[in-house]
Computed example of a mutant assay.
Amino acid sequence: MNNLLVFFTFSLLVCLSHAIEVDFCVADRSLPRGSQGYACRDPATLTTDDFVYTGFRGGRTITNVPGNNVTLAFVDQFPALNGLGISMARLDFGVGGVIPVHSHRRSEVIIVSRGSIIAGFIDTNNTAYYRRLEVEDVMIFPQAILHFQVNVGTTPATAFVSLNGANPSIQFTMNSLFGGNLPADITQQITLLSNAEVMRMKRAFGTA
């Protein structure tokens, strides 16, 4: 399985990276991020450690209500990704755990390394494409499309994803509707939910 993950990562780096005019541009996070990413650190200050990310090692403790633990390797966590057009994340699921409906501004590939999950996306025609994925199965989620993952096995599950952007963002639909500063009366109007249900959801997401 380790060899498969190495091949998966290497293939994505080759296929999804964007051309840049220098060999690399490790992010200088002491400076503001621009529309094309961060400015580059001085190559003379870099070592091999700057190109290695160890954040996916080890087990995970899952304590949140959705029953997941997401470990990001976006440019803010792994500055060497700056300008390369790629990022990764590790998804850990407790039994019954979910990654709720969300979207990114980039496309995503997922590979299951442990357990069994249902993964899917919903296109702009409201057609759902979903499948039970087992270990070593791969699925693609197109750019900006709503998608989700659910652990349907009897044991914890783990998957790894890669996205074709160093900072692809994550927007959870429920958090956007109920976890931000959108007033309850507007939320009620645009979701067709009752005021009582809107307030229940806002309390669940900590804004009421």
Rank of each mutant, 00 (worst) to 15 (best):
M1P: 12
M1T: 15
L5R: 10
V6L: 06
F10M: 08
V14K: 07
A19F: 02
I20S: 01
I20G: 10
D23W: 02
F24Y: 03
A27L: 01
R29F: 02
L31T: 09
G34S: 11
Q36W: 09
Y38G: 01
R41V: 08
D50W: 01
D50V: 00
F51K: 02
V52D: 00
G55K: 00
G59A: 08
G59S: 13
R60M: 08
T61H: 14
T61E: 04
T61V: 11
N64R: 11
V65Y: 11
P66S: 06
P66M: 09
L72E: 09
L72F: 11
V75S: 03
Q77E: 14
F78R: 04
A80G: 04
A80F: 08
A80V: 09
L81D: 06
N82F: 15
N82G: 02
G83F: 07
R90N: 13
F93S: 01
G94R: 12
V95E: 07
I99M: 09
H102N: 09
R105S: 15
S113W: 06
R114L: 12
G115M: 00
I118L: 12
A119P: 05
G120S: 03
D123I: 04
T124R: 10
Y130E: 11
R132H: 06
R132Q: 04
P142H: 00
I145S: 15
N151A: 06
V152H: 11
G153N: 06
P156G: 07
A157V: 03
A157C: 04
F160G: 00
G165T: 10
A166P: 05
S169L: 04
I170S: 09
Q171I: 10
T173L: 08
M174S: 14
M174T: 12
M174N: 15
N175T: 08
S176R: 04
S176E: 14
L177A: 10
F178P: 03
G179P: 08
G180D: 02
G180C: 01
G180W: 10
G180V: 00
N181R: 15
A184T: 06
L193I: 11
S194A: 13
N195Y: 09
M201D: 06
A204Q: 09
T207H: 06
A208G: 14
